[in-house]
Simulated scan of single mutants.
Amino acid sequence: MTRHYAIVPAAGSGSRFGAEMPKQYLPLAGRPLIHHTLDALCRCPLIDRVWVVLSPGDEHWSAWDWSVLGPKLETVYCGGATRAQSVGNGLAAAETVVADDDWVLVHDAARPCVSQAMLRALCAELADDPVGGLLAAPVADTLKRADGEQRVLATEPRDGLWQAQTPQMFRYGLLRRALAEHPEVTDEAGAIEAAGFRPRLVRADASNLKVTYPADLALAEAILQRRKEN
């Protein structure tokens, strides 16, 4: 019987956010942003263990008590210079526990609003899939391509376009090989695609946002508060 494991790469600096500390540690609803991300994964009964991959020089993690998240959480200080390196190092750290056919869910540290329903849907829809896949949302807005002067060069058709989210879920052995062979990718699905496979898109919605800019923090807090009230 295959198991499900999660890896959260959290070695980045969040430079686009412009804060003095990595954005995963910024306060959100009274806790660090990453706490909400890890809490969602640790609470999911389908996931057996969660590895958070930190930078070897991380100075922020130890300032908080993470024991409330329970025994599933494991911390490894082996983050790399890129996302692909951090995930690859996390996969290597998990090799004594995870079998090649087990599922690995890779989730962004800065996506604190993933819901239990989304996690269940991802695991259920991919249970018998030969490749694996990812949460994603169909593109709803009109897309404009800009020129060098930030003027509209063209309007791009959005038919068939999806916005990739996370978790992205693939078999351990396949994902590890794909990332090793294609380290230039920006997400796990890209590595699987480069290896010649076609990941499945599992529909999610915009509430599974990635906190990238300061305004996103307020939106994420509103989403979390609404769920708590319901």
Rank of each mutant, 00 (worst) to 15 (best):
V139C: 10
L69I: 03
W162F: 09
I7G: 03
P71V: 15
K210S: 15
W103L: 09
Y5Q: 03
Q165R: 04
P45E: 07
L209V: 04
H60E: 12
A93K: 05
A140N: 09
G173Q: 03
G190P: 01
V53R: 04
C113F: 06
A194M: 08
R227I: 07
T37R: 00
L54F: 03
P32L: 00
P9R: 06
L209W: 12
A215R: 15
E20L: 13
R49E: 01
E59K: 15
S55F: 03
G196C: 10
N89I: 05
D102P: 14
D187H: 11
T142W: 00
Y213D: 10
V114L: 12
L73I: 06
E149A: 15
P214V: 01
E95L: 01
R227H: 13
A93S: 13
S55Y: 07
T212S: 08
P9Q: 05
A195K: 08
G18L: 12
V131R: 14
L69H: 11
A117R: 08
V139K: 11
E149Q: 14
L105Q: 08
A121Y: 01
E125W: 04
F17L: 04
L217N: 09
M1Q: 02
A222M: 06
L126W: 03
A81T: 10
Y172R: 06
A99T: 02
V106F: 05
V131Q: 11
V52M: 07
L175K: 01
R151E: 08
S67F: 02
A40K: 03
V104M: 05
E125T: 11
Q163F: 07
L174R: 02
M118Y: 02
P71K: 14
E193F: 01
L217F: 06
I223A: 08
A137D: 07
P22L: 13
P130R: 01
G18W: 05
A117T: 13
A222K: 13
H35A: 11
W61M: 10
L119Y: 01
D48K: 04
G148C: 05
L28T: 07
H4L: 12
E74P: 04
G30F: 06
D147N: 14
G173N: 04
G196T: 13
R226G: 07
R31T: 12
G190H: 10
Q225T: 15
A220Y: 08
P22G: 12
C113N: 02
A19N: 09
D101N: 09
K210M: 13
A204V: 02
L119P: 00
R200Y: 01
C123N: 00
R177L: 12
C44W: 07
L28A: 09
E181D: 11
L201D: 00
P27H: 12
A218V: 14
P183K: 00
A6C: 06
E184F: 05
L179C: 09
I34L: 08
H36K: 01
R151K: 12
L122H: 04
R31N: 07
E221T: 05
P45N: 04
R145Y: 02
R158I: 15
M21Q: 11
G14R: 05
G14Y: 02
